[in-house]
């Protein structure tokens, strides 16, 4: 069995009286797609925010590749290879799709204010080198036609795709996807699912996926964690989770209420 990439160890997080996460523990193994499901307000986004450092859990530890990252600021976690997308998209809307992806090459680039100011020489070479890499991602996600469009002018589905591209441009070891298919039509959803599977296959990226659409999750994940009211109510292979009483109750409860 492959090694543990992400180890969530007894993590609790609350906002005043709201217990967003209560004693959550689970592992994500190298090369897996692990999905976190649960009704609205279950704590899924809070979990991703804790992993990438936007939220600081009050207790518990988070280990990434064996290293304790619980206290690291977000940009240091990004440097270690954690990248994410947002439920409500957080792109640079005034930049082109291309520049959004180029901005995400930050960690892999070296030029500084001085070499950048000169441009000719190292900075220019670097721009071209990384442009080639970014163009590969653009091709991979079939974004050629929108490469130089200002992101703010793109449709919701395309913006989600650009955001995925930006997350990929970091060449992450762990990719956190917060409801990448929310608000999409069926065709866009299928495209997105295909991209996620391709990323997993071709780049061997470990993926933690949050998704509302349980059917879709069951198709593409190796392992599923179910949350409800900040608690882990079930964990296991997809086939098992889809039969799980507590999970069915959580979802039915939501639909009835």
């Amino acid at each position: 069995m492959s090694s543990v990439k992400l180890h969530i160890d007894d993590v609790s997080l609350s906002f005043g009286g709201i217990k967003a996460l209560q004693h959550i523990s689970f592992d994500v193994r190298e090369g897996e797609i692990v999905s976190v499901i649960g009704p609205n307000g279950a704590g899924k986004t809070s979990l991703i925010n804790s992993i990438n450092g936007f939220y600081k859990p009050q207790s518990g530890r988070i280990l990434f590749g064996g290293r304790d990252i619980t206290k690291l600021p977000p940009y240091k976690r990004a440097q270690l290879g954690i990248s994410r997308t947002f439920q409500n998209i957080a792109l640079y809307t005034n930049m082109t799709a291309l520049d959004n992806l180029m901005a995400a090459r930050h960690l892999h680039m070296k030029s500084n204010m001085l070499t950048g100011a000169l441009f000719i020489g190292p900075a220019q070479r670097e721009e071209i080198e990384h442009r080639v890499i970014v163009e590969e991602i653009i091709e991979f996600l079939e974004m050629e036609a929108i490469r130089k469009s200002i992101v703010g002018t793109l449709s919701y589905g395309l913006r989600k795709r650009v955001e995925l591209g930006r997350a990929l441009a970091l060449e992450p070891e762990l990719l956190l996807l917060d409801e990448p298919m929310a608000g999409m039509n069926q065709e866009e959803k299928e495209d997105m699912a295909r991209f996620i599977l391709d990323i997993h296959e071709q780049r061997r990226t470990t993926i933690l996926l949050i998704e509302h659409d349980v059917g879709l999750v069951m198709d593409i994940s190796n392992h599923v964690v179910a949350l409800d009211f900040g608690q882990k109510i079930a964990e296991g292979p997809p086939a098992e989770i889809s039969q799980n009483e507590a999970v069915i109750r959580a979802y039915l409860g939501q639909e009835n209420g």
Binding site: Y92, N94, M95, D99, M102, A103, R105, H106, M109, K110, S111, N112, M113, T115, G116, A117, L118, F119, A123, E126, E127
Partner: peptide, 13 residues
Amino acid sequence: NISRTRTGRAMIS
């Protein structure tokens, strides 16, 4: 040149 290379993109971000 600063604005169109790494440092500038970081600033605009």
